[in-house]
Simulated assay, not measured.
Amino acid sequence: MNETITAMGGYEALALNVIKAIVFLILGYFFAGFASRIVRDRLGKVERLDQTLAVFFSSLVRWGVLAVVVIAVLQLVGFQATSLVAVLGAASLAIGLALQGTLSDVASGVMLIIFRPYRLGDYVEVGGTAGTVKEINLFVTELATPDNVQIIMPNSKARSSVITNYSAHPTRRVDITFGVDYSDDADKAIELITAIATSDERVLKDPEPWVRVVNLGESSVDITARLWCNSADYWDLKFHMTKAVKEAFDKDGISIPYPHRVEVVKKAS
């Protein structure tokens, strides 16, 4: 009878520890998120600290707190610290092999933070996928495409891919090619394009606008304008120049020809 009572007491104690462990795990999960947000908000207010680092450190705090919570929960249900260390040591090789991709993502995330090929808010193209960087954490980089589609990319893939950062430099060059008819005055077309470019405040004076005939195509004389502007003005300037030059050509009688070919038939002598 005493043994039965003792066994029942042991089961009750175990059940109580399991309930405590579940409650502790839930509370720990929410505390990890809370601590992560606190770190992100506090570091985000430091002017000299890059926001990319703030996001990364907040992610590091979250996963660190979760690791401590899991260890504490295991101890609460009966795993002693020494036994836990032994188990972890014995399983480290198997876990490392099973999670080598995840560990590679973590290592790549650290390298991305150290060398910072891109930062939060940069518009980049990584491995053929383009978008604005929204978040960099321990495991993944989150991008948002221009049409606001979320792209989740493992850090290991991002680090091993070719990265094109369109926001890295403060200025960019806009290249626009216009085709005019062979019967039109190319010099007049160049003057119109140059006048429109120099009158736009977004076009930088240094380097000055460059407008030249670059090719004699099958259907048109191709004139390219190379204009420097601030990176933030790139697309607005490109769209504006395309429309403004078309309207100026229409007003001055310069035509933009449709693709066509002239067929020459030779008669036999």
Rank of each mutant, 00 (worst) to 15 (best):
T4V: 09
A7L: 10
A13K: 11
L16I: 06
V23S: 07
V23K: 09
V23W: 05
F24V: 14
I26H: 07
I26L: 15
L27P: 01
A32M: 09
A32Q: 08
A32R: 07
G33I: 02
S36G: 14
R37K: 09
I38S: 04
R48M: 07
L49H: 11
A54R: 06
V55T: 09
V55G: 02
V55P: 01
F56Y: 15
S59M: 02
W63Y: 04
V65A: 01
V65P: 01
V69A: 13
A72H: 00
V73I: 13
V73T: 15
L76I: 10
F79W: 03
Q80M: 04
T82V: 12
V85E: 08
A86T: 08
A86D: 03
V87G: 12
L93G: 00
G96A: 06
L97M: 14
D105A: 02
S108G: 07
S108L: 09
G109W: 13
Y123P: 02
V126F: 01
G127A: 13
G127D: 12
A130Y: 08
N137I: 04
L138P: 02
F139A: 11
V140F: 14
V140Y: 14
V140R: 13
T141E: 03
A144N: 06
T145I: 10
P146D: 12
V149M: 10
I151Y: 08
I152W: 05
M153H: 07
S156F: 09
K157Q: 13
S161W: 03
V162Y: 01
A168D: 13
R173S: 12
D175N: 13
I176Y: 04
F178W: 10
V180L: 07
Y182H: 10
D184L: 07
D184K: 10
A189N: 07
E191T: 06
I193T: 08
T194P: 00
A195F: 07
A197H: 06
T198P: 00
T198R: 14
E201S: 14
V203R: 02
L204H: 09
P207A: 09
E208W: 08
W210N: 15
W210R: 14
W210A: 10
E218W: 05
E218M: 11
S220A: 08
I223Q: 00
T224Q: 15
L227G: 06
D233K: 02
D236F: 10
D236P: 03
L237I: 04
H240M: 12
K243M: 05
A244H: 06
A244M: 11
V245K: 04
K246N: 08
K246Y: 11
K246E: 13
K246V: 12
E247R: 00
E247P: 00
A248N: 01
F249W: 09
K251A: 15
G253N: 12
S255C: 02
Y258K: 13
P259S: 05
R261L: 10
V264K: 02
